[in-house]
Every structure is written in structure tokens, then in C-alpha cells.
Simulated assay, not measured.
Amino acid sequence: MSDGSLSIRARIREASNATFLADLDGEAVVYKPIEGERPLWDFPDGTLADREVAAYLVSEAFGWDVVPPTWMGEGPFGRGMVQRWQDVDPEQDAVDLVPTEDAEAELSVDGAPRWRPVLEAIDEADRPVTLVHEDTTALRRMAVFDVVVNNADRKGGHVLAMPDGHRFGVDHGLTFHVEHKLRSVLWGWIGEPLDADELEGIDRVTDALHGDLGAALDEHLTVAEVDTLRARCAALRAVGLFPPPPGHGPAVPWPLF
């Protein structure tokens, strides 16, 4: 999106791959060079940046603004993913761990659903806790998006709560595998029907895959990965329900945040 000079501000050390906060034409961006990607046993080497860009392209086809603007660019450490930085609201949590004894009271406010429970666990202090996430349109859309792109790494920390109430999803390097890889903390709507807005979003992606989106994805994914993406859209549209975990392999990423 810019041919300007990208300069490094700091390294983001919490990330598992080389990730930097950088400046591009006076704007803060995240920069993940391909050379800094750690090899994985189940994803081809050097493909994570392209998968992040592909996730943004699919997000744009949905029309829901799930993924911040993301593109391939050049930086001090070579070619990589560049994504517009987002300043989150530190007072908001879209995904949280709450004491299990308090969870039931937290799940609704004045009878309206507030949180959806996902699983119960024991924290580092041996206290029972419940993993919950918001019951909101923004999070439902993100969950649908994750099914379509086959997101293997939807951690709680990959959901950014913005001051205006919007929610962005980030860190989409582990997506678009041809095998079922969905691992997520957003399992709160299992078996519930997709609403009209969500079905229309899937239809927009399906239509776009036969046009500009399909052509754009060919630059970042394999033919088999794009074909499997089409198949996932068709299957989700036909069933019309939020799917359950497949029953093999972990259903959530680790760590959860």
C-alpha cells in the first residue's frame, strides 16, 4: 500500500516469529519478515506472510473488516507481511478467563447474553476458571471467518478490542491448510444457526472466489488451498450452523492467550 521507507521501532518479543513494530510514512505498522519465520512441521516454510495477506483479502470479501489492512512489503530484513498497527482499548476484553464460581453471574446482564462459555480449566494458582468470549456480532463474524480460512491459531490475544467497540483479528499465518486445522477460543455458538448476515457474507466470498479474489489469492496460496477454501465455503453454507470441533486433535490453540 506504500512504497515508502520502512524503519524499525522495536521488536515484539511475545510473538513466536520475528515481529517488529515499524514506521512507514509516519504510520505505525507491524512487520513480519519471511526470513524470521520459524519452520513448522505442518505448514510449508516461508509461507506465513502470504497466508496473512490472503486472510486480509478474504476479510475484505466478507465486508466485515475483520483483519486490519495487510500487504506484502519490503523492510530492513527483506520481504514480509506489513499490517497497519491498531491501538486497542486496555479497558476492554473480548476473551477472558473468569473464576468459575462467578462465571454464571457474568454470562448475562439484565437477561441479555454477555459472554459465552468455552471450557473450564485450572489456572496457575490451582483455581477453577472458565474461558469465556463476548456474545457479539463482531465475534460471531470472526468465528465464521475463522471457519472459512481454517484458522489454526485463534488465541484470545489475537482478538483486538478497539475503543469504538470494533474487534479486529490478527496473526493469521496458520490459515488455509488443506487439512482441517481449526483451533480457536471462539466455540461459544456450536450448533447454532448462522444468521442472514453471516450467510450473505459467505455468499460474497464464494462469488468473489470466481473473480478478483480468486485471482489475487493465486499469488499467495496453492491451487489446492484455494480449491479447499471454496469447498469450505460451500460446506458451511450448506449446513448453515456453527460447526463443532472435529473430534481429532486439539480444539483450542496453546497457549490460550
Score class of each variant (00 low, 15 high):
residue 167 R to I: 15
residue 46 G to H: 04
residue 10 A to V: 00
residue 54 A to L: 01
residue 201 G to R: 02
residue 52 E to T: 01
residue 246 P to D: 14
residue 126 D to S: 15
residue 48 L to M: 07
residue 17 N to T: 09
residue 210 H to R: 13
residue 189 W to D: 10
residue 249 G to V: 09
residue 204 R to D: 02
residue 146 D to L: 01
residue 242 F to W: 04
residue 139 L to K: 05
residue 156 G to D: 11
residue 18 A to F: 01
residue 94 A to M: 05
residue 54 A to R: 09
residue 223 V to N: 07
residue 136 T to M: 02
residue 95 V to T: 15
residue 223 V to I: 12
residue 39 P to Q: 07
residue 115 W to A: 05
residue 39 P to K: 11
residue 153 D to W: 07
residue 247 G to Y: 04
residue 100 T to S: 15
residue 257 F to S: 15
residue 133 H to F: 04
residue 147 V to H: 11
residue 24 L to W: 02
residue 220 H to R: 12
residue 142 M to F: 04
residue 5 S to M: 12
residue 113 P to S: 10
residue 178 V to I: 14
residue 70 T to Y: 11
residue 222 T to D: 02
residue 224 A to V: 10
residue 12 I to S: 07
residue 204 R to E: 05
residue 74 E to V: 02
residue 36 G to S: 13
residue 197 D to A: 08
residue 211 G to H: 10
residue 225 E to L: 01
residue 66 V to M: 08
residue 211 G to D: 15
residue 29 V to W: 06
residue 180 H to L: 10
residue 82 V to R: 09
residue 78 G to H: 07
residue 37 E to S: 11
residue 184 S to K: 03
residue 95 V to S: 01
residue 66 V to R: 03
residue 116 R to S: 13
residue 92 Q to W: 06
residue 45 D to I: 01
residue 165 G to L: 08
residue 228 T to S: 00
residue 252 V to Q: 11
residue 157 G to D: 01
residue 141 R to Q: 13
residue 42 D to E: 00
residue 63 G to H: 08
residue 147 V to N: 10
residue 85 W to F: 06
residue 185 V to E: 04
residue 82 V to K: 10
residue 22 A to C: 14
residue 13 R to E: 12
residue 106 E to Q: 06
residue 27 E to P: 02
residue 173 G to A: 10
residue 24 L to G: 08
residue 83 Q to W: 10
residue 41 W to A: 13
residue 201 G to L: 00
residue 24 L to Q: 14
residue 153 D to Q: 13
residue 69 P to Q: 11
residue 61 A to F: 05
residue 68 P to N: 01
residue 226 V to A: 07
residue 228 T to Y: 00
residue 65 D to L: 00
residue 63 G to T: 14
residue 99 P to M: 03
residue 131 L to I: 11
residue 128 P to N: 15
residue 211 G to R: 13
residue 177 H to G: 02
residue 121 A to H: 12
residue 148 V to P: 03
residue 75 G to Q: 04
residue 35 E to S: 15
residue 78 G to P: 00
residue 23 D to M: 06
residue 232 R to G: 04
residue 257 F to I: 15
residue 114 R to K: 13
residue 37 E to D: 13
residue 112 A to I: 12
residue 251 A to R: 14
residue 218 D to A: 14
residue 99 P to I: 09
residue 130 T to D: 12
residue 34 I to S: 07
residue 230 R to Q: 06
residue 129 V to F: 04
residue 180 H to D: 05
residue 118 V to E: 11
residue 93 D to W: 12
